[in-house]
């Protein structure tokens, strides 16, 4: 029997929450990719989004606010054979965890990062999140938002993510396909997921998004993929197009894959150049002792450089 990627836990998100569509898209993607459930790990931070791993029937770590990326990176780099998906809210990823979000772009460890983007901090009763527009006042704010809006797509592109996409939680068909592409992508990917909060965001509602979203892939000439064969000019143009699309917001909001660069080596391959057999016998799998229970290291040989003869 095929593995059931959903756990039987009671899901305690609000009725109508966009998060349901995300979890369903993830579990469908995992099912369709026919992945070994023991070969995938889900890592999250804190907030409504942070509960995600408990609802997926794979190993999961519901970690600290803002720190899901480094925990996930540790899992990935110590066992590069695992697929690691990371879920977090806009506040989790782009406010408290923004430093890690940017650093992971430089590393490109091979994480699939999903940003649940609803412009508010739901679990703490609706404060403004970094993706909320300047001047916007959702119902639980006592004053209009006086912060500028952070652009997750543009930030991810600038940080160096090798795949950047946007999905909409009420278009599970498209979101599922994006997640599948991202999981199969060797480097790290960011998926900004428009995910209305029915309780605290009365402005950016499902209806509001439905009237505005359009799919990049509907334009048959749209080609966001950079391959190792592309010259610098071509890859530069694709990056520039992605950045141009990233700036589009308002009456029309693009979804789909903005950019996918297959030419950037993942961190695991860079590390493999320094650490022999790193990918074959990962740090997680190595022996640390011989059959007699003592260290595998011979200090006289390993630390010969420290010996004064």
């Amino acid at each position: 029997m095929a593995h059931n990627f959903k756990t039987d836990l009671t899901v305690d998100w609000c009725p109508g929450c966009g998060d349901f569509g995300i979890v369903t898209s993830i579990t469908q993607a995992l099912t369709e990719l026919n992945l070994d459930p023991r070969g995938v790990v889900a890592v999250s931070g804190i907030g409504c989004s942070g509960k995600t791993p408990h609802y997926i029937n794979i190993a999961g770590a519901h970690t600290l606010h803002g720190r899901s990326i480094p925990y996930a990176t540790g899992v990935k780099l110590s066992n590069p054979k695992l697929k690691v998906i990371v879920t977090g809210g806009d506040g989790d990823m782009l406010s408290i965890g923004a430093g890690h979000f940017v650093a992971e772009g430089r590393r490109n460890s091979g994480l699939t990062i999903m940003v649940y983007d609803n412009e508010v901090y739901g679990l703490t009763k609706g404060q403004a999140a970094p993706t909320m527009s300047l001047g916007e006042q959702t119902k639980s704010l006592t004053r209009a938002n006086i912060f500028g809006k952070l652009n997750p797509i543009a930030l991810a592109l600038s940080a160096g993510y090798s795949m950047v996409a946007r999905g909409f939680s009420f278009d599970m068909k498209q979101l599922k396909e994006i997640i599948k592409t991202a999981i199969n992508h060797e480097g790290s990917s960011v998926i900004d997921i428009l995910q209305p909060c029915p309780t605290y965001n009365n402005i950016n509602t499902m209806e509001w998004y439905k009237q505005r979203v359009y799919k990049l892939e509907d334009d048959k000439s749209w080609n966001p993929i950079v391959t190792p064969e592309d010259d610098a000019k071509t890859s530069g143009e694709k990056f520039a197009s992605a950045m141009t699309k990233a700036l589009e917001w308002g009456d029309r909001i693009p979804t789909g894959i903005f950019y996918q660069n297959k030419a950037i080596p993942p961190f695991t391959k860079r590390l493999a150049k320094n650490v022999p057999n790193y990918l074959e016998v990962t740090p997680a799998e190595q022996r640390v002792s011989t059959s007699d229970g003592y260290t595998v290291v011979d200090p006289k040989e390993t630390f010969a450089d420290k010996i004064l003869m």
């Binding site: 770590a61 720190r67 540790g74 899992v75 990935k76």
Partner: peptide, 18 residues
């Protein structure tokens, strides 16, 4: 990128058995 990441990453690695 910082010490928060350092301990979080090492913790992530620890739960894979390294």
């Amino acid at each position: 990128e910082d010490e928060i990441s350092a301990i979080a990453m090492a913790s992530g690695a620890a739960i894979t058995g390294a």
